[in-house]
Design a protein around this nucleic acid. Structure first.
Lengths: 243, 243
DNA sequence: TATTGAACAACACGTTACGTGTTGTTTTAT
DNA sequence: ATAAAACAACACGTAACGTGTTGTTCAATA
């Protein structure tokens, strides 16, 4: 038999927490002293360990009470629900991470807080992960949209950084002569990163080129916009002529 | 100028929320009617949008107030902090997911809730991701432990499932003749999955074999234990003799 | 202009899983 | 017997609102 203080020390759970579990009926001590002090049995300790395990698994105390209270219960169903929740939460965090990275890089490259861009990034990532690339559904079929989503998901932090760096560099020199060495170099940097992300799937890249030209306020491929697409086209044409 | 109701409809934010933001001084309307009804200007709308953007990024209302309240502020620092938080949370969720999968499969294969195993799984995943494989530091150097952690991180849901299935099958037939066809098959199934997970790095697998024999209550490579290791050794020896 | 319905302000209580602090009582060690 | 430690029971606080109530102001209609 443990007093509440001993139990607390043995398990690392605070007295207040045990107090609370007693209050909500999640873990009632199986006996008491004459003076009213709580005494916990070995069975109580086991019950507490079960509670802690389920708590770690992310269940609410209410749910835990339900799970431990019913005899023949649907463990698998509860666990599947938790798993689904965990997976959704992971997807949300991934989107959030990319949004934060986008904002971080936009500040880094633009050296100021560009609110319109933040709104667009947020708006973009606020959608369901599935819907994000639906804006291309006029130009691409479902399989291609899926491919696009996969590429996006596989982008590492470094990819995002380099991609944005290349595009911001182009934006800074948007009006230079497309036949110049520097213009060619900028376009090359962009192309290299694009090829890396698309794993050299040139056919797919060409399919994407057409919708990119209509790109208005879209934020997929952020921070690319019409201006950048135009620059790349000019450099490409100038390069062909030179040959 | 918008009334609180119009603003609510335009932005999708509930009136109660705007009420609350007014209360905590996060968004005070810039004017009021004679009767005391709140009127929001275009600037107020902008402020609200900023609040919503920062909220989506996961900042607390207190932090948002601080961020929007200071002029020359350390945006990058705040965002980096958020990013760190998001990354930690993602790691935690990943561990949680694996723990849930472990429990799910243990129920599936054992057809009952095995509390001791749940405790061990929880305990195992409760540690810092970095520490998880430190129990092998007597046998492996740091580089190898890192390799082990990488392999673990790369395991898909299917890998985990097959791994556990193979081991539970062995546990169910732990006492069969190691020279039998069935024993060989069981060992083969285990080996195939192990090779897949280790991407055929046989040298590393051999290095691991030694510490595995000491495996007591350890939960890395769960649900493998001494019994299973013993079975695999008996089959291996029987197979060698047969040749 | 009077009326009536909709919108609004201001307030209260509820939510989760406890942390922190208080007062009065019981237990334990001396 | 006494003092210190542990304890029970209670209250209030947390974050970001949801829900519901009462009394007031606005806007549209007769």
């Amino acid at each position: 038999m443990y007093t509440i203080g001993k139990l607390s020390k043995n398990t690392g759970v605070t007295v207040r927490t045990l107090d609370y579990y007693d209050e909500i009926g999640l873990l009632n001590p199986s006996s008491k002293t004459e003076g009213g002090h709580r005494l916990y049995s070995e069975d109580d300790v086991m019950q507490l360990e079960r509670v802690l395990a389920l708590k770690y698994m992310g269940f609410s105390l209410d749910k835990i009470k339900e799970i431990l209270g019913t005899k023949a219960l649907n463990w698998q169903e509860s666990i599947q629900q938790q798993l689904d929740m965990v997976k959704r939460e992971q997807e949300r965090l991934k989107m959030l991470e990319q949004a934060l990275l986008g904002v971080s890089y936009s500040i880094e490259f633009e050296e100021e807080v560009n609110w319109p861009i933040i709104y667009r990034v947020i708006q973009f990532y606020h959608q369901d992960p599935e819907e994000v690339f639906q804006e291309y559904n006029h130009h691409l079929n479902m399989e291609e949209i899926q491919k696009l989503a996969d590429i996006n998901a596989k982008m590492t932090e470094e990819d995002i950084h380099k991609w944005m760096e290349a595009i911001y560099d182009i934006k800074r020199h948007i009006h230079i002569d497309p036949r110049s060495e520097q213009a060619l170099e900028l376009a090359q940097r962009w192309l290299n990163q694009a090829e890396k992300m698309f794993e050299g799937d040139e056919e797919f890249m060409e399919d994407l080129w057409e919708p990119l030209q209509d790109l208005q306020e879209g934020i997929a491929f952020y921070p690319m916009d019409k201006e950048v697409v135009g620059f790349l086209q000019r450099v490409s044409e100038a390069h062909k002529e030179a040959k």
